[in-house]
Simulated assay, not measured.
Amino acid sequence: MWASGRTNRESKMPLAGLAGYIVVFFSLWTFYNFEVASVFKMQYPGLYRYDVVKLLLWTLPVFVYLKYENRAAFTALRLRSITGAGVKWAVCVSLFFVAYQFIGTIVIGEELRFNLDFAANKWIKGVILVGFTEEILFRGFLLQKIAAYINFGLANLITSLLFLFIHFPGWLALNMLPATLFLKIALFAFIFIFSMMQGYVLKKTDSLWVCIVIHSINNLAANALGA
């Protein structure tokens, strides 16, 4: 499938529909972050903690569309069991990103510490659910839909740019961008490279679970170092 850059015709999403899906998703996520998130957090803290809105906007529509295509979601998304090779990829890539987090902390001059006693909100949203919600949409769904039209490398590049851009509404709405230009560029580069590597991990292992595990471990390290 990946070698030719094309999927079976029955799973090929109409190009206009794919573009529309991306535009609508980005628009809704931007509106939510700037106009809804702060109110939702105050009025429904429990639901906010469990990231209900992200599950509704990022994950549920993917399963609904695959149901419309009459495809088995777990098969279409490559939510297959992890093989021995997949375990090796998960361990090696996770260690790479954990090491990067540690080195990055030292380079920017912050105190080096590793604290797992951070807020429940970060555990639920930033570690447990983040890999599931983000990998389902970007690697499991969009990467494969885009790769139905172009070769894998270019599809992975486009998906990674989209993955970078989707972080901006949250960064800007919550004023979370780093102060200096150097740190901004470093953050953007990391998000982009992370996404590119995740795409190749999916290609090599044929299991989205490997990507989900890596994503969650990376965020665990980031939260523990920043706790």
Rank of each mutant, 00 (worst) to 15 (best):
24 V>E: 10
152 F>H: 04
96 F>L: 10
146 I>D: 01
86 G>Y: 00
11 S>F: 08
127 V>T: 03
50 Y>L: 11
107 V>M: 15
177 L>Y: 00
31 F>Y: 13
165 F>R: 11
209 W>E: 04
31 F>A: 13
145 K>T: 00
192 F>A: 08
57 L>E: 01
97 F>A: 08
34 F>M: 08
22 I>C: 14
58 W>D: 03
130 V>E: 09
67 K>F: 04
35 E>R: 11
46 G>P: 12
99 A>I: 08
210 V>G: 02
7 T>H: 11
34 F>C: 13
170 G>K: 12
37 A>M: 11
47 L>G: 12
181 L>N: 13
120 A>M: 08
225 L>I: 04
115 N>S: 13
53 V>R: 15
56 L>V: 09
37 A>G: 11
175 N>E: 10
159 T>R: 09
207 S>T: 03
157 L>R: 06
25 F>Q: 06
60 L>F: 07
133 T>Y: 14
38 S>C: 07
27 S>W: 03
55 L>A: 13
7 T>V: 14
223 N>E: 14
120 A>L: 11
57 L>K: 04
146 I>P: 00
48 Y>M: 13
183 L>Y: 04
184 K>Q: 12
107 V>N: 08
86 G>F: 00
18 L>A: 12
25 F>T: 08
48 Y>W: 10
64 V>R: 13
2 W>I: 05
7 T>W: 06
7 T>L: 14
37 A>I: 01
3 A>C: 15
48 Y>E: 13
7 T>Y: 15
225 L>S: 15
43 Q>P: 07
203 K>F: 02
174 L>F: 15
132 F>I: 13
59 T>P: 05
151 N>W: 05
3 A>H: 09
45 P>C: 06
128 I>T: 05
113 R>V: 10
187 L>W: 10
100 Y>E: 12
82 I>E: 08
63 F>T: 12
56 L>F: 03
92 C>A: 14
98 V>C: 14
113 R>E: 12
146 I>Y: 00
87 V>Y: 04
156 N>F: 01
195 S>A: 12
119 A>W: 05
180 T>F: 01
205 T>A: 14
173 A>R: 08
134 E>P: 00
217 I>T: 01
151 N>T: 03
64 V>G: 10
29 W>T: 12
14 P>W: 04
138 F>D: 02
207 S>M: 04
187 L>G: 10
76 A>D: 07
169 P>L: 04
209 W>C: 05
42 M>V: 08
178 P>G: 05
